[in-house]
Design a binder for these strands. Sequence first.
DNA 1: AGGCTGGTTGACGTGCACGTCAAGGAAACG
DNA 2: CGTTTCCTTGACGTGCACGTCAACCAGCCT
Lengths: 130, 130
Amino acid sequence: MTDAPMTIREMCAAFDVTPRTLRFYETKELLTPERVGQRRLYGKRDRARLTLILRGKRFGLSLEDIRQLLDLYARDSVNEAQMRRACELGRARLAQMQAQRAELDEAIAELTTELAWGEGQLARLARAAE
Amino acid sequence: MTDAPMTIREMCAAFDVTPRTLRFYETKELLTPERVGQRRLYGKRDRARLTLILRGKRFGLSLEDIRQLLDLYARDSVNEAQMRRACELGRARLAQMQAQRAELDEAIAELTTELAWGEGQLARLARAAE
DNA sequence: AGGCTGGTTGACGTGCACGTCAAGGAAACG
DNA sequence: CGTTTCCTTGACGTGCACGTCAACCAGCCT
């Protein structure tokens, strides 16, 4: 069952993070696992959120940035003002991501060029060594 | 002349960073401005490097990561082993960037979907309010 | 000479994202 | 029953990327 709740250890293994990290995210209200007695149980929702959190981090977003974005995905924004705000934030972030994508493309192109030059040099050195 | 050296203030204005940042990058050997007396003068090379540094940061790279990459762009790697190492690093980073690009595309698609849903909800609320 | 502006080197402080113990609870095992 | 194992909550420590402040030149202006 992919929707069976997971213990903290299973989460750590599945997502390659430490228990400390998961508890830390909880204090920052990024995750809200159920409790059985004192122990945490992470359900489908929290696993989806953690996926988004880790991806956000790879893009260089701060945890606070991510928290704001998660509100948009939460789709439980009760009142309209809150939802309007989440949408605005989402649009801004989307624009930013598209800009980042353009930059990333440029960086990839440049690095490819440099790499071709570098490997050309290596090839030249190899020939000269004979 | 676009290749005229710039003072630290001009650099700060041009790249929107603080003097502290530029001096900090220098201690980390990311920048190596000339000196006129005690004052720093940033030439074409350092400006190009700073552009790459700031872009790297937007991708979530650490300054140490960036320093390694800059070595590849430096193209003054004197010995072969060093250059071979730089190329390997570059290839690894390139693969990582391409993976990040794929992830970014996915994130953009998801966010677009969520946003459409959110704005649809807002529109529905607006109609219901009439 | 005095003062202002702008730059310089330390040294220490700060916010973020955790890491690393310490002390204790609860459940499971022999 | 005790012990082991896993989890819990603080509390303090750490590395990175700077911010902030102090004290000190070096020109330039008047």
